[in-house]
Every structure is written in C-alpha cells, then in structure tokens.
Design a binder for these strands. Sequence first.
RNA 1: CGGGGUGUAGCGCAGCCCGGUUAGCGCACCUGCUUGGGGAGCAGGGGGUCCCAAGUUCGAAUCUUGGUACCCCGACCA
Length: 489
Amino acid sequence: MAKEITSREEDYSQWYLDIVKKAGLADNSPVRGCMIIKPHGFALWENIRDTLDRMFKETGHSNVYFPLFLPKSFLEKEEEHAEGFAKECAVVTHYRLKADPNNKGKLIADPEAKLEEELIIRPTSETIIWDTYRNWIKSYRDLPLLYNQWANVVRWEMRTRPFLRTTEFLWQEGHTAHSTSTEAVEETLKILDIYADFVENWMAMPVIKGVKTANERFAGAVDTYCIEALMQDGKALQAGTSHFLGQNFARSFDVKFLNKENKEELVWATSWGVSTRLIGGLIMTHSDDDGLILPPKLAPQQVVIVPIPKPSPEIMEASHSIAKQLRAKGIRVKIDDDETKRPGFKFAEYEMIGIPVRVGIGARDLAEGKVEIARRDTKEKMSVSTEGVADYIQTLLYDIQSNLFNRAKTYRDEHITQVDTFEDLQKVLDEKGGFVSAHWDGTSETEDKIKEVAKATIRCIPIDNPLEDGKCILTGNPSKQRVLFARAY
RNA sequence: CGGGGUGUAGCGCAGCCCGGUUAGCGCACCUGCUUGGGGAGCAGGGGGUCCCAAGUUCGAAUCUUGGUACCCCGACCA
C-alpha cells in the first residue's frame, strides 16, 4: 500500500477524490450528491452486476422490476421502517410545469397539477414489494418467492462522497418470502455467504461476516447481517447487508398464506443488497498514489499492449499474435495503437486507470524475441520471451488477483486490535485505526455513549464469534464475547 | 443545521490586502515543424458575463452591503 496513514483525514478525502477523477470513473453532477458514472466506472459496475446476477440465478433467484415511485402511504405502514427513512426521502408533489407568469423564461410547478397523494422516490423497495406480494401469495405452494431487482434508489443524505455514499445510487435489492422462520434465516445467511464469496474472491477485499447490533440494524429488520471491510485509512466500510425481516412486513402489509393444515400464517421475509458503494470500497482498498489498481477478475481490460515507441507493421503483427493467444484463453486484452500519444503517456494513463498487466513491445524487444511485461500491483517489470507469453500472463493475472487479496488481508489482520479498557479503545482508534475488538455489555445505551465519545460504532458481532468472559470496557458489566468497533464510512 | 473555505477560460490557480494599460499563468485544445524505450520540445493560435445584484468612485475582478452556488469538517446515514 503506497498510501501511508497520516493523521489528516482530509488527505485521504482528497486522495480518494483524485483517484475517482483521474481514473475516469465518475464526474460530479449538477445535482448535489449525485454522480455521473463514466464508461470505465460503469464497466466495473457491469462486471460486478453480471457476476452477482449469475450467482443469484445459480441459487434459484429471478429478477423482477418494481416502480421508482412509492405512494407516501406505503411508507407509513411499517413504523420503524418509516422512521428510519422518512428524513432522507425525495418527494414528488406535482406532475406538470408551466411558464412562470411573473418571470419570463422561467418554469414553475403548475399549482393545478398538484398530486393528491405525494410520491416518494424509493429509498428502498420493501413497501411496494410487500404490498404486491400480498396478491402473489395465497398458499404455501406459492412459497418461497426468491426475487431480486437491479435498480436505482434515492436517499437524500446530508454528506455524500462519490460511490461511497451518493444521493442516487445503483444497487440490487433481493426480497424473498418464505413459509418458515428457519428457511428465511437460511436464505439470509446464504446470501451473506454469496456476498462474502464475491467480495473476497472477485474484488479481492477481505471481509468480516457478522451481525449488527440493534442500533445499527436496518429499519424494520429483526436481524441485519453484514460484511465489513477495512479501508486503507483505517476506517471500516459496510460492503453489503442481508436482513432477516421476520414477519414485520408481512404483518404491516397483511401478507398471509394457508399452510398444509389449512391455517393462515404470516409470511417470513428477507431483504438484501449491495450497491455501487462496492466500487468505492474497491478504490479505497487497492489504490496507491499512482491511481487505481483493479483485481484482474473484475478489470474491464485485463491486459493492454503498448507498441513502443509507436505502431510499426512488425510490432502490430506481434501484438495481434499475442492478443489472439490471450483472447483464446478468455483474457480481455486491448491493443493501444493510438499514434498520437507517446508510450510514457500511455504507461501513466493505464496505471492511473488500474489495468492489471501491461505488455510493451518495441523493435529492440522483438529482435531478442521478447516483450516487456509490467504488473500494476507491484509495478515490477519483466522481460519475457514471446514463446509462451500467453501462459505467463495467465499465471500472472492469477498471481495479481491473489496478491491483492493477500496484502489487503495482511493489512486488515494487522488492524484488528484487542483492547480491554476504554482508554485503549480511543487510543487505538486515534493512532492506529482499524477494527478494535473489545467487550461490551450488550446495551444500546453503552453503545451510544461509546459512539458519542470515541466516534466509533460497533461494526458487527462476527459470525462464529468465540465466547469469552470479560467486562464491558465502558461500564465494567459482565460480557460474554468481544465485538468489533471501528470508525466507519 | 453548526464551523471553516472557495466562486476569475474546459480543468487547476495567481491577481484582490494597497481600485488605474488590452485580466494573467500552468495543464488541456487547434496548426506547423522537429521528435519518439516513462506523462515530448519549439513556434504560432483559439477560448473570459472575473458567481449575481445593488452601492461607493472619474474608474471596480479588486472596496461596501445583500444574495447565491459549490467544496471541506462535524451532526446525520443499508
């Protein structure tokens, strides 16, 4: 990791924003907090989306699509849910504009086109989906429903940051309905495993699977499970969540089914999602001061071939030959034959956008029957014989993928610190960052106090957490296990 | 909603304190030549509502007042 930890948070902010901009991932939009995703950024999202989509389908899920607008009354039906989202909702009040009679060239909302019932732009779709599921579910034979949708949602957050938290963002939200609690919990955990598998093995980001405390739970959930990642500045990032909703939404939206004994029961529910925030996590996990570093499995282009100093018939022939061999192995490769840019410029450019492997081919190399291969993660350069170069690159891509994961994991593991006093918790958070493993008495009051003073929240109680008798670092009350605290995005 | 900061060419900025030629620099862009193994050099060129409004003044990017937008830090937040 080229970026060293400094005490100045703004440095990280700036570093992060620079990479988003220089790597050509996104632009600011005219609307505050929104983001224009550029081709390179969107290609990343497409790879994330397509891979997860395949994983969902392999586990029996189907895609659906529900509307962008929610009638306001829908949001009122589940009390906790409403309370959690009300203060960040965009509201549609009119359906027509007209010329402003007092101000030429300006438009105003036509007062005669005021909506009877205001519409909410979905912050999440539980309400409309459960309103619909009421009609789709009559019998145990209709269950389970295993549906997912790829959509955009809007949450009018006060503070935004490209990818990590934007006003509008792209995500997938799965909403499933089950006949038993056990089956719903299994589904919740199955999805959590898919998320962890994807984020670790594709994005090369190590995560901790865990369950949220009541304070951090999704509005309307019985239990919220999560995967928590650690960024290079020592702050945690919630990378995905999977909620066991119990019968809360079924009760609010009156979704019942007849069981085998011909008795009415409320349906059990789950919901789960990951968003474009994952791209933010990817940036903050792997980038260095030269720009983005992409894990090969997700990189839109895995290899770029750069003729040095510019394309010639011989170089182009060699380039196409290597590209063909690579494509035969399913490797995504691009030949940059742009004559208007010089090699040095291209090198810097491809490093900035994070292409894992660069192949340089010049007359000098060809004369020796070699090419120059540069890997983005370590910036090493190797001179490799053109014989068997495709095999070499294939192996190298695997190496880079696992190297990225391993070094992120080493960093993460080095930043899980056990403490036994509140003073130490604060000290570690201030000086070292990362996760802090400490005893907690299990009450929301204690968690709130710690948050207030130390600015850290309980990120999760890890799954399969070992039991250990101890004393709460704040109150000294007995505790059965350690939990993970961190400052978070 | 609090605390800071910034609005001057596509981007990044200087100029403002102490008012006075035609508003300047770097990057980017266009043309030409020379180049070409780590962000090319030289020459020429195009591009401006100095955020908006009112005021002070012979004269405002610069001073005064009001407005507005954006950024950063908090609070808030799957």
